[in-house]
Design a protein around this nucleic acid. Structure first.
Lengths: 343, 343
DNA sequence: CCGGTCGATTTGATCGATCAAACTTCTCTT
DNA sequence: AAGAGAAGTTTGATCGATCAAATCGACCGG
């Protein structure tokens, strides 16, 4: 409650005066220590430590024309289950940015247009050096708009659809490889009628995941009929879908998400096959719920994605050309045993 | 991939020269329009718009000694279900900060000490004007440490435990009022043996929620024996707890979280009472899962919390004393009907 | 003994904004 | 017609850092 008495902050000059050296020497101790005489350096270091001095971000930003901040839109939480992956990504990105000396600045927007507009404003006011886009959808116009406005950006997620020729930097997880791994595993377990439970065609991510399944089961007779699409990414939709797949003779199911997979498992519980499900189900995203339930699931390496994304970004910001400006990361399958009853 | 050619950004001076006026006039148009002659103002406004000029955040921050940013620690996502409330709060805070012209800057830390240290560094480097703490635990030392270091802060969550006398600004949700509302509702429905499913004593939030239930059922005979504590905030623990409560004769259950409530519902499903649960269960937090499942739950007004918190914060930063520096917000009970099968 | 090189440090200019005070006009009063 | 006052605009100084160039000594070879 005390009215915050903003005490005089130490500055380069105040530290310098205290020691009888020049401000540039203090600056050099911090940014270019090798040019400073060791004896001087020690004295300065001690004074800096004692005063708890930190260079002013504003002063630095003004001079260097770098804000050392990254802008990212925070999406409204829609679903406690699938928000989990974005949550992990957000955390990883914040962590990695911090490691590199950058700040992560959040923004909110109602739609893509609002997001682009706010990112542009932030960039023009030199509040951020870079934008990170996530949830790249089919025919996403954000990259083109940001490029027009000269806002540097990278995306987590590749461009889907017609404009897929865009050559900006991105990092994505190979969803097809994930579902392929899932389907392969089920084949190894001896299954020959492996179903896929996903969403209608038209979403980049969904189609990708279906493609991985298909590539793995195409040679098994009757596979074509074992793909079911439901509208919602929700357990209740998963129940429906699983019911259909089983009716068509599926003996194992690969799902496009953990939500759907949880519903599918629920289905088998309802029809009386509790515990060891006779129809194995594999989910996608390896959410905490999957972990708790004992659901096998495809795990996305989002930590790595964050690291790669920022590496790419800063290479470009430095004016260099990155070796591989687009990167597909390999997910891995986590094999689990279902818990007798969890959630 | 194009090496970002950072084009010359328009500045106050560049706009001013273009129009043949002084920089201060342009500045006044933005910050103090009333002193500028309407004719001039229009010309300047047009030029600003045409050039897409935005004042440099760094320049402004350097001069005004305000970064217009707020620091907040992003916790590692532990649980897809209960992260939901923090997720909503994060979004609300980002939105409200943005509305007030502030940025939300994220930081990550391994523990409370790391959090305090990073917040202090950010504050000393004038990267943030204010820190927001969440998840205030029992005997939380962060407020004291920040105060020592002169870092202005507010907390979402009241101080629990011995140091509860701290007089910093906080906003919290009255958990006891929530569980009291839940228990009252169950009484109105005619129940006389209402159980409580929560966590062991010692967590501020948990004890608070139990207290609300107790205040409402204390006069009902046998209530004292109808409180069960489980260790994990997880559905599987909820199953166990519900089993015990029912064995002790509970005919309705108030839970400390949606996770536990979901487990409790699962219990009744397992024992054969599908659909309309004969033992009504009320959860806490009104997570997306509760909404989807049809679980009644206590809803926390986190949007309001974010608004109040920032209002308090900026009152203090302006050197004024807020009217009510500590605020308890009232949650409300959302009454729902269970879905036949969801998740 | 002098010019040259290197190491260490200092000085001047600059980034882009705002505050405070000074300066011009113009109007209105007496 | 001179002076006060208000309205509108401009100028100088400043926030705190970094870059680029200048300075200062010490050391060295010729």
């Amino acid at each position: 409650m005390d009215a915050v008495n903003r005490q005089a902050r130490p500055t380069l000059v105040s530290i310098a005066q205290e020691l009888g050296v020049s401000r540039q020497t203090v600056s050099n101790v911090l940014n270019n220590p090798s040019v400073v005489h060791p004896r001087t350096r020690e004295r300065v270091d001690a004074a800096i430590k004692k005063a708890g001095y930190r260079p002013s971000a504003a002063g630095k930003a003004l001079r260097t024309q770098r804000s050392m901040a990254i802008g990212l839109r925070l999406y409204r939480a829609v679903d406690g289950i699938n928000g989990a992956v974005m949550d992990r990504f957000l955390h990883s990105l914040a962590e990695e940015a911090q490691r590199l000396g950058y700040q992560l600045t959040l923004l909110t927007a109602d739609d893509a247009a609002g997001e682009v507009e706010k990112l542009e404003t932030l960039y023009r006011s030199a509040s951020i050096d870079l934008a990170v886009l996530t949830d790249t959808g089919m025919d996403d116009t954000r990259p083109a708009r940001l490029r027009e406005n000269q806002v540097p950006f990278v995306t987590f997620g590749r461009p889907w659809g017609r404009i897929a020729t865009s050559d900006h930097c991105w990092v994505d997880v190979d969803g097809a490889a994930g579902t392929a791994a899932a389907a392969s595993w089920l084949r190894e377990l001896g299954h020959e009628r492996i179903g896929f439970l996903g969403w209608p065609e038209g979403s980049g991510v969904g189609d990708d995941r279906r493609a991985g399944w298909w590539a793995t089961v195409a040679d098994l007779p009757g596979s074509a009929g074992l793909s079911v699409a439901v509208l919602d990414d929700h357990p209740s939709a998963g129940v429906e879908g699983a019911t259909q797949l089983v009716a068509r003779g599926a003996t194992a199911i690969v799902c496009a998400s953990d939500s759907l997979a949880l519903g599918a498992i629920g289905h088998f519980r309802t029809v009386g096959r509790l515990g060891e499900a006779e129809v194995p189900v594999v989910g996608f995203d390896d959410t905490p719920v999957a972990r708790a339930t004992g659901l096998s699931s495809v795990h996305q390496p989002v930590e790595q994605a964050a690291v790669d994304l920022l590496e790419l970004a800063f290479t470009v910001l430095d004016g260099k050309t990155p070796a591989r400006p687009q990167r597909l990361l390999e997910p891995h399958l986590v094999q689990r045993r279902l818990q007798p009853f969890a959630r």
